[in-house]
Amino acid sequence: MTGVGTNRVAIIVDGRAVAADVEPRTLLADFLRDTCGAVAVHIGCGEGTCGACTVALDGIAVRSCLMLAVQADGGTIVTAAGLAALDGPPDAQNLTPLQLAFRAHHALQCGFCTPGILVATALFLRANPHPTRAEIVDHLSGHLCRCTGNVPIIAAIEAAAGATAP
């Protein structure tokens, strides 16, 4: 329904074009999940603290719960479901090198926070392919994980960065 109180939003989500009319107050996270079917976007707090809903918007990590859908109009979004676009070719199970490193290091348990961490980390490693441990820890400051104790996540990122080193 187009009409009073809605705005047209057209975005590309993991390679798929989506256009819809939304209320101005609609959060990008809700738009991605409810309208675009991007269920890899997990809502853990809705207030920008946990990082689970992080997506790449035009190559920048954003918390989709802190943006309005209308602000993303015209943008290109990558979620964990399309991580290959940020991280390199996937294997037969459609897992990228970063995802495989997380699996190998038991860097996820319930997996609820994982998609946001993956997207943010893929962008982080593009900008800083050989981070120090301290830089990884600093990078993870924007993400909450309640299960793993974070140590395995640091190890997985170190391994992924090492694996892509020349």
Binding site: V41, H42, A80, L95, Q99, F102, G111
Partner: peptide, 15 residues
């Protein structure tokens, strides 16, 4: 359970 979860296909309640 990892491949589903890593691809964001965990099928949590909200999904």
């Amino acid at each position: 359970e990892d491949p589903d979860l890593l691809r964001g296909e965990g099928k949590f309640l909200a999904d």
